[in-house]
Structure formats: C-alpha cells, structure tokens
Design a protein around this nucleic acid. Structure first.
Lengths: 225, 225
DNA sequence: GGTCACTGAATGAATGGTCATTCATTTCGG
DNA sequence: CCGAAATGAATGACCATTCATTCAGTGACC
C-alpha cells in the first residue's frame, strides 16, 4: 500500500513484512506497558497494530515470543549504543557519565519501552534469568571494564572491587529509571546524570571526616589519650 | 491440631485461624517464588499448605490478596526492623551500615521471600504502584533522613541531594539483592555490606585525582602552562 | 486491455484448555 | 447434636492459538 511495487514479486512482501513486524512489536510494547504482559490479550496487541489477531502469529511464534523479541531487539541496540558512546572517550569518569546518559536518556525517550524493561520483563524468573544471563551480564561487564581501566590510570582507587562497583552503579541507574516510571511527575531522568556521577565518584562523605576512612569505625568520643 | 485447646470455645479457632493463615501465606510465598505468580495455581498453594483449594478462600479474598498480604506483612516487619536498627545508633555511616545489614540480611535469610519481593511483586504496574506509593516511599524516607542528619553533623557533604542519595543507596542494595536471587552461586549477600558502605561513603575516586573534583572535567592532557 | 488462475498474506470465528472461584456436602470439636 | 471449618467437584470466564475462508495482487495468455 505505502510502498509502490517496483521490484520483483518477492521484494515487496519482504519490505512490508518488516514494516508490519515492527508495527506489531511497537504495539505490543505499548499494550504490555499499559496493561501488563499477563493482563494484555494478544487481541489487544493486534488491534493496536491495526491487524487481525491471527496475523500476529504469522510474525511471532507466541505471546511470549513478543516479549522476548522486544527484549532482544532493544538490548542489542542498547549495548551497541553503550559501547559506541564509551569508545571515543578516554577519561574514566566521563565514560561513566556517557553510559549513564545513554541509559537514562533512552529510558526517558520511550516511556512504554521503559515500563516494559523496568517492570514487565521482570515477571517470573523465566524472563529474568534470560535477562540476567545474557544482556545484563554483558552490560555490567562494560561498566566493570570502565572501572578497571580507571583503576589502571589511577583515576579510581585500586582497592575497590570493580564487579561490586559495577553492580552499585547499575543498581543506581536502574532505581532512578524505575522511580521515574512510577512517578506521576514528568521530568527527564537524564537530568540527574551529573549529580549521580558526582556522588558515585566522590562519595557522600565529607573528606575531612574520620568516619569515611575506616570500614568499621570506632565512635570518636571513645578516643582517650 | 498443634496447640491444645485450653481456653474458651472462641479462643481456639482464633489461634488456629492465625496458624493456618500463616501456613497458607508461607506456602504462597514458596509457590509464587518457584513458579511465578501468574503461573502458580491457587490449588498449588493449597496443596503446599496442606489444605483444600476452597480453604484458601476462607482466609483470603482472592489470589491477588495473597500477594498483597505477603507484601503488607513483610513490609511492616521490615520497616519496623529498619527503624529499630537505626534508632540506637548515632554515627550516620553506621546507620547506613545497619540499614544495609538488615536489608541484605533479611533477603539472604529467606530466599523465597526475596524472590517474591525482587521479582514477583514487580509484575504489572498494579502491584508496583502499590509498592512504590506506600512502603518504598517510607523506606526511602528513612534512608533520606539518615542522610539529612548526617549532613547536619557534618559527616556528609551538604551539597549532595539527600533524596537522590537515598535512591542511589537503595538502588545499590536492591541490585545486590536481585543479583543474588538470580545467581546460581550461593553466598550471603550481607557479606558485601562493608564494601558497599565504603564505596557509597568514599566514592570510587582516588582523592588525589582532579577528575573527581569537577562535574564536567577537562581532560588533563590539555593542561599547558 | 481484459480475463483468469494462482499465490500467499490476512482474517476472525471457533476450539480447547486452563484455572479462579463457588457452594452443597462432610467432618470435627465440644 | 450444633455450628463452625474444611472440602473438592463443578462452574463459568477467559483467552491463546488454530485454520477454513477471504482478499488482493501478479503474471500469463488471448
């Protein structure tokens, strides 16, 4: 309909196939985001995409397959974007900032996708495990690498555990995203990036305070010469 | 059955009522954790609790009510425990440490409950919103208070945003918990508390490095006298 | 340039299976 | 024996998935 057929008989259907697949995936993202995966009906997705219920099954194996496809496609783009944003930067702190920008920027740009990622995808350990085993591991790996290199250049303290640091960093971003999803107030989560980085890098402590220097501090009033 | 009835006619049923209610809630936690809320059948819960399917409805309004009850009860205990652990402590850093200990300690002690909290409860925004609006807000409030007071005593820098700091702190703990749930390796998440606190308090930066002092640092190689 | 048969995409009503929930009946303690 | 508590088979909704049918282009042939 939209594209005039100029090429051979097989070429046009292929083009439209991609378009329609995208449309269904887009519709599924919106419907899952608003009703929740389990409460959403395939018929709802079909209606939102402007096709009949049966048509969904010409493009996807099952309802689950819709969720998995959303996940796979987005994650691929996301990891690519993350790597690309880090690549040209040298300074470790700026690299973290770039990752945070991409992370929160992407979320802020597409609320339905964010809801699916922050909430719907985490249903039942079935999806979680897939999420965790593949993409999340890779994503955490990228952050970890940045930290390890930062330690090598001397920007970051050597005694911190890079794996732990990566989890905390990711956890912070993730929480910011979830918080944004569930908040009625409309703001751009990406605006908090600088404050997040500052806090992650410098910590909350006042540098002049002894409390920040020892793992299990003794209260200072006990000091007695 | 378990408790011999010594009291009046109405007292015994009340006692057993509580016991059975607990048993069903406990069973529900385990079943939801292993099969996932939507895939679990009420009959599974009943079987695990050693009662008939219909009996569940003598104690709970609906399947949803099971999840909500798990949530309400746990959260109440949890917030109490959190407050109690903070109350006797003065040092702000130690207060954060106490919160982290309670948080990860509790998770580590009851894996099924942890799964329900980290995964199952986050299904569909319906539960998430409930989670977020009431308990999470209160919990974040406790953390925030600790930080505000830490700023007052001079332990924490005044320029950090306490709300943001609370979110990052909670996000870090939350991620540690989720990571633990999904990891095949068995360890006690509470063991990471000291490292988490150290990193949150002091930051990742090497103090001697310029990169940590300015929000948007200029690469140092550009320095030219 | 009109007709026709063909192909594969699209449709949506019908199917079948799966549970949450109910309630008539049974059990049990006192 | 009574009433409360428990049972579990039966009910009824719901919805993913299927598939017989329709539709719309396409090329061939006259």
């Amino acid at each position: 309909m939209t594209i005039h057929s100029v090429t051979t008989a097989t070429a046009r259907p292929l083009l439209e196939r991609g378009d329609k697949r995208d449309a269904i995936l887009r519709a599924a993202t919106d419907v899952f985001a608003s009703r929740g995966f389990f409460n959403a009906q395939v018929a709802d997705v079909a209606r939102a995409a402007g096709v009949a219920a049966g048509t969904v099954y010409l493009y996807f194996r099952s309802k689950d397959d819709l969720l998995v496809s959303i996940f796979d496609r987005t994650m691929r783009e996301w990891i690519e974007e993350g790597r690309a944003s880090v690549a040209p930067i040298k300074d470790p702190v700026e690299r973290l900032r770039a990752i945070a920008r991409v992370h929160l920027g992407r979320m802020g740009r597409d609320r339905s996708l964010a809801v699916v990622f922050q909430v719907e995808l985490r249903q039942s350990t079935k999806f979680m495990e897939r999420f965790s085993a593949t993409a999340l591991r890779e994503y955490l790996g990228i952050i970890r690498e940045v930290i390890v290199e930062g330690q090598a250049t001397g920007a970051f303290r050597r005694e911190i555990n890079p794996t732990l640091a990566a989890k905390l960093f990711f956890g912070g971003l993730d929480e910011m995203a979830t918080n944004w999803i569930l908040s009625a107030r409309r703001y751009a989560p990406v605006n908090d990036v600088d404050a997040i980085i500052e806090m992650f890098v410098r910590g909350v402590a006042n540098v002049r305070t002894a409390a920040s220097r020892i793992p299990r501090p003794t209260p200072r009033k006990a000091r007695r010469p």
